[in-house]
Write a protein that binds this DNA or RNA. Structure first.
Lengths: 217, 217
DNA sequence: GGAGAACCGTAACGTACGGTACGGGACTCC
DNA sequence: GGAGTCCCGTACCGTACGTTACGGTTCTCC
């Protein structure tokens, strides 16, 4: 009811960040059984403080999701001086980064919570996760794709469609399998190989210097 | 503790199936708030009967997942007399069917429940969903792909890898967006178009009569 | 050094819900 | 027509957990 200014601004104190880290840790380890009591115990703070800072349980979860999202933002891929090798490398890095994110235990736990919440109505955790995950990466990658097109390296009509194809080539069944509890531990080598393969496939489909990319029936 | 023989065999009476349909309906409409009391009220049966038939809440959910899975199994795509057009049509049908499944409100609700359960330990709903979804479709599609290879229409080393690429091209970001609460209502026309595009892309990557499918760096 | 704020630890409250018990009605079998 | 079975409706129980309240400690500011 009466959130502090800091919460509204997204400015968190060190102590508050430590609390949210404890929430993340509990999400990963305990999964579902994330109670306010367990958070308070783990973070060595009182429940009264939790309610004072975050309003209620949903507010705590939302703050946690935002806190984690604020850390995921990686370096921006500048797109001047673009040649084929650099573009390919950028896409491969994107793919590898994304695979690392979705296969991390933190992301899995967070997405599970958000999906569980999407079933109910209240406090749009799913929207926050989407905005900072799928859509954020789309907005960062599309300029790269368009720069590639401007440089005559890529060939597509709609950047959104091209991005979604790349997204599918990279992620395949990984995320849904992990969310549903499938093991599938991806090593760093697996991720590099998958990222390379997805990038190769993407260039095979959208590379400007390749064959006409789709045969029209 | 003492499930009836019918439950173990997966043989369900008409009444029991009606109860599970009520569970599905409640999952779709109420999402998270699926209580034993609400199921009993909706299905017009007593809670005592629910516990007698399904053991406990998890048993009820597991039976519901299995019941829905038993209905999803579609026709088998026979793979003799294979020519290019028929193979392409089979893949496109697969893609369209899969897109219809994952964008159905029933599938979304069921996957959300299973993912929520995967966070906890108990009763492997996620495993059941995976076995009847992702893995079942893989086992049905891979023979088609291998028949296509045997007929000289496709070119790949590993059927699993080829299938996973197809899976990614078809699903892209659709399922995760829907699970996280994004709107994205797919019309039948959208599904047909996406299925066609995914199939075209797949043939561009794995078609035997196309260019060498991947440039090795 | 005294007032007040911030916060920890814990106890207490209210409720929602999983699970159980019980009475009563409908049907079957003898 | 009486015993047994199945099942509906409902009341009940126990507990887990979100939320609130409160005493005690530390720190800041004057």
């Amino acid at each position: 009811m009466t959130p502090t200014k800091k919460d509204q601004d997204g400015e968190l104190t060190t102590r508050q960040r430590a609390v949210l880290d404890a929430v993340l840790e509990l999400m990963v380890r305990e999964g579902d059984q994330l109670t306010m009591t367990s958070v308070a115990k783990r973070a060595s703070c009182s429940k009264e403080t939790l309610y004072k800072w975050f309003g209620d349980r949903d507010g705590l979860l939302a703050a946690t999701v935002r806190w984690q999202a604020s850390r995921v933002r990686a370096g921006s891929y500048d797109s001047q001086r673009l040649d084929a090798a650099l573009l390919r490398e950028s896409l491969k890095d994107f793919a590898a980064t994304w695979l690392e994110v979705i296969s991390s235990s933190t992301s899995i736990a967070l997405n599970r919570v958000a999906i569980g919440h999407a079933a109910s109505r209240k406090s749009n955790l799913g929207g926050i996760v989407l905005a900072n995950g799928r859509f954020a990466i789309g907005e960062r990658l599309k300029p790269v794709l368009e720069a590639g097109r401007a440089a005559g390296l890529l060939n597509f009509d709609d950047a959104e469609t091209a991005f979604r194809t790349f997204f599918g080539l990279v992620g395949r069944d990984v995320q849904i399998r992990l969310l549903l509890g499938d093991k599938l531990d991806m090593t760093a080598a697996d991720i590099q190989r998958d990222a390379t393969r997805a990038t190769d496939h993407f260039f095979a489909l959208y590379g400007a210097n390749s064959e006409p990319r789709i045969r029209i029936l």
